[in-house]
Every structure is written in structure tokens, then in C-alpha cells.
């Protein structure tokens, strides 16, 4: 006999993500999923955004890495509460890992939860974590063809933050090309150009994030 199931294979992840979202919403915490390649500057960007927002928002971070606690030590140094998830080889975070990490965070004391995903432009696209916004971080040294080569991660993102703009004179990165490609994949998506080391563009990106946290 044949049982017709017609079930989503990742239904369990989607259900857990919905539970995470409900839990965060009930606590008044805005959740951000930060994706991008290893070395794109996700941690440095978060450090710069948190410094900019320190009088406006109380953040916490979940750091996803295959191994080690280098990133969470950086967050501790700037006084941001952090939970480290080591995936021990897995290429992405999933909603179940976030559900476990949420038990270790005092949600009452924060406004913003940033989840720094495992550095990966492929697998992280497939897993809803329960976030309200996903931002994709792309550095100028990675090249302006990434939206064409990894479209899924750009398509599902609400904003693209182009980092390391201080390196532009040393690359052939075409800002207009990547912005046009992103616009096609994510017509509503916002684009920011930032250099975290110089501080360029950080205020604009931080203002946008603060607006989103307030529900605008």
C-alpha cells in the first residue's frame, strides 16, 4: 500500500523556527540572522553596529562556528552577552540549535538578538532560525559576481551589507553591478556600503537596523 504523505522534509525545522519567533516576539526581542562567507567581516560589522547603537539598543549574540570561541570572546570583550554554538562540522545553524541557545539568554534584558551564522553562502540559505530579518554580508574582496553564483542566499535576504569598502581601490569590485543583481533577487532589499575599520556607512546601517527593531 501507499501512504500519501506530501510533507515538507524540513517541517520539524520550520516548526521550531516558528516557536523561536513566537518566543522572541513575546519577549519583545528583534532577531537578526547574519549570513556571509568566512572572512566577509560579520563579527567586525556587528562590533561596529553595536558600538553605534550602544545608547539605543541592548543586544545579545549567538555565535555559530564549526569550532572554537574566537568570535564569542570578541563579543565578551565589548560587553555583549553571547552564547557560542559549535556545530562540530555542520555547515549551518538550525532552529533546534537556536532553541537550545535561547535557554541561556536573559531575553528580558535585551532588544536585539543577532545570530551570526556559520560562514557559508550555500547551506545557511535553507534554514529558517526564527529571525525577523536576514542580512547577507559580502566583502569587496570576494568579488561582485557572488549574487549570480549564490543567488539563493541573496534572494532570501532583507539587506545586503557590502563590507571592506576601504579596499575598493585595490579590487575590481563593481558596486553598481552587485547592487543591480541584488535588486533583481530581492526587490525590497536595502543595500549598505560600509567600512567597519574606517567607520564609513556604519551610522546609516545602524539607523536602518534600529528602525527595523522598532517595527518600522
Amino acid at each position: 500500500m501507499k501512504i500519501v504523505a506530501a510533507k515538507k522534509i524540513l517541517k520539524a525545522n520550520d516548526q521550531l523556527a516558528a516557536e523561536n519567533r513566537a518566543r522572541l516576539d513575546a519577549a519583545g526581542v528583534f532577531c537578526l540572522n547574519v549570513v556571509g562567507s568566512p572572512g566577509s567581516g560579520k563579527t567586525t560589522l556587528l562590533e561596529a553596529l553595536f558600538a553605534q547603537l550602544k545608547d539605543r539598543l541592548k543586544p545579545a549574540v549567538i555565535e555559530g562556528d564549526i569550532a572554537g570561541s574566537i568570535d564569542s570572546e570578541r563579543m565578551e570583550r565589548i560587553g555583549v552577552p553571547v552564547v557560542q554554538i559549535n556545530t562540530e562540522g555542520a555547515c549551518h545553524l538550525d532552529a533546534n540549535m537556536i532553541a537550545s541557545a535561547l535557554k541561556e539568554i536573559e531575553l528580558k534584558g535585551i532588544d536585539l538578538l543577532a545570530i551570526e551564522n556559520v560562514g557559508n553562502l550555500v547551506c545557511t540559505a535553507g534554514y529558517d532560525l526564527g529571525e525577523r530579518l536576514r542580512i547577507v554580508v559580502l566583502s569587496t574582496s570576494e568579488g561582485d559576481d557572488k549574487a549570480r553564483k549564490y543567488p539563493a542566499i541573496f534572494q532570501g535576504s532583507h539587506a545586503m551589507l557590502i563590507t571592506k569598502t576601504d579596499l575598493l581601490p585595490h579590487t575590481d569590485f563593481d558596486l553598481e553591478r552587485i547592487a543591480a543583481d541584488f535588486k533583481r533577487l530581492a526587490p525590497e532589499g536595502a543595500v549598505f556600503q560600509v567600512s567597519a575599520v574606517r567607520g564609513d556607512g556604519i551610522a546609516e546601517a545602524a539607523d536602518w537596523l534600529a528602525d527595523k527593531c522598532r517595527g518600522n
Binding site: 500500500m1 501507499k2 501512504i3 500519501v4 504523505a5 506530501a6 510533507k7 515538507k8 522534509i9 524540513l10
Partner: peptide, 11 residues
């Protein structure tokens, strides 16, 4: 799509 459509079971 990423679906489990059906399961066949031997009687």
C-alpha cells in the same frame, strides 16, 4: 520543493 510525497509499504 523539498517534500516526502509518499511511502510504499509491503503488506
Amino acid at each position: 520543493e523539498l517534500l516526502l510525497q509518499s511511502i510504499d509499504i509491503e503488506e
